[in-house]
């Protein structure tokens, strides 16, 4: 079984957001970049499942749409324990564009479970996971707060109005995960930090995709 964790590179959540060029551009001077917190929890859960799987989960890949400046954040995911990474070499312009790029990554890789954070902490669109599932034509489950694998059976919990729903799912599927999927994000250990540069980080060029968001000049 192979797991793909989609991750965004976002400003640290305590960043003071400033704009430049007459308030038209985000001022990234001095900003510390991190793995989007929901994606980091997804990665943590994926690692927990792999460790408990007795070898049945063969690899965890992370995928990120971003320019070369996102690589330190991607390598942090590798330091935490992902086996390899794919970076789509493009600016993450909007949800549709990102989902289209990730769809291509999934098509090339035959993953059994694709995990996406419910939203990214920069634009909070909550759109990529659902769009991605449509692009690749596999089922998706939203608002997943627990993911378990028991003797090969995959089940999820999701929050619904007035309670919790437990579903058994068939593979492959996309899980759009929220808080609760893992308790605390994992801190990388020395060995992981040393190994991060030695793990494969493949850079692929983007496919053509429309950008749907229009910006007013």
């Amino acid at each position: 079984m192979k797991i793909l964790v989609c991750m965004s590179n976002v400003p640290d959540t305590t960043t003071k957001i400033r704009f430049k060029e007459d308030n038209t551009k985000f001022d990234d001077a001095g900003v510390q970049w991190i793995i989007n917190p929901w994606d980091e929890l997804a990665l943590t859960r994926a690692l927990e499942l792999k460790e408990a799987s007795g070898g049945s989960i063969s690899s965890i890949t992370v995928a990120c749409v971003g320019e070369a400046t996102t690589e330190p954040t991607i390598r942090k995911a590798l330091a935490i324990g992902a086996d390899d990474a794919i970076r789509v070499n493009a600016v993450a312009q909007d949800s549709y564009f990102v989902a289209a790029q990730l769809a291509e990554v999934v098509k090339q890789g035959s993953y059994d479970i694709v995990l996406c954070g419910i939203e990214s902490s920069d634009y909070n669109n909550s759109a990529v996971g659902g769009m991605l599932a449509e692009f690749i034509d596999v089922p998706s489950v939203s608002s997943v707060s627990a993911l378990n694998i028991d003797n090969g059976t995959v089940s999820v919990n999701r929050e619904i109005d007035g309670g919790k729903e437990t579903l058994e799912v068939k593979l492959p599927f996309v899980a759009v995960v929220q808080k609760g999927i893992a308790i605390d994000p994992r801190i990388p250990n020395m060995r992981g930090i040393m190994m991060a540069r030695k793990k494969p980080l493949t850079v692929v060029e983007p496919v053509d995709a429309d950008v749907l968001v229009e910006y007013e000049e």
């Binding site: 942090k76 990388p188 540069r197």
Partner: peptide, 10 residues
């Protein structure tokens, strides 16, 4: 280096 910053952050 990236590793030094990662250790500081850890």
């Amino acid at each position: 280096t990236e590793e030094q910053l990662m250790i500081k952050q850890a």
